[in-house]
């Protein structure tokens, strides 16, 4: 049985809200042999109800905003959001475009911001490991409350 002092393996969910695909292919590099984040216990899952960490890439387009909110709401607590890349963090070059709301934090709360255009896998690893620590903290806090 897992106690609250154990570190568990979070499952990740990836959603593209309008990115140029640059960060997405770096996320795929992250899942594959050279960078391989499975060594931190993370695997990519397609189902939001199984996911603990949401990796979002790209500025949020108007059509994606409602879908992103729904996905976020579907994920079980405690959950974490990692904004991957400059566009997801701030909206970067797309700020002011007519169909873009801005960064991910204009729609849902973000816990970790990963810089870079496109963000390099090394930085992404730092980002998700930071998210892993935050997730474990959140989990412990929730258990204390319960």
């Amino acid at each position: 049985m897992a106690t609250r002092n154990d570190e568990l393996s979070p499952w990740i969910l990836h959603f593209d809200t309008g990115s140029c695909n640059g960060c997405d292919i770096e996320i795929w590099s992250l899942l594959t042999p050279r960078y391989d984040i499975e060594r931190f216990g993370m695997i990519n899952k397609g189902n939001p109800k199984h996911a603990d960490i949401l990796l979002v890439t790209g500025p949020v387009t108007k059509k994606c905003a409602t879908r992103l909110k729904t996905l976020y709401d579907m994920m079980p607590d405690p959950k974490l959001v990692v904004a991957c890349g400059d566009c997801a963090s701030t909206g970067a070059p797309f700020v002011g475009c007519y169909n873009v709301c801005g960064g991910v934090d204009s729609v849902i709360p973000v816990d970790v911001y990963v810089p870079g255009c496109a963000c390099r896998p090394e930085v992404l690893i730092d980002g998700v490991v930071m998210a892993l620590q935050k997730w474990n903290e959140k989990r412990t806090m929730e258990e204390v409350k319960a």
Binding site: S19, C64, R67, P93, C97
Partner: peptide
């Protein structure tokens, strides 16, 4: 879902378009 409106943004300044069109 991915429409950002780049054709309008790219028309704003031809020197910056080279940055935008890679995105």
């Amino acid at each position: 879902f991915n429409h950002r409106g780049l054709e309008k943004a790219m028309a704003a300044d031809f020197r910056r378009t080279i940055y935008m069109c890679e995105r």
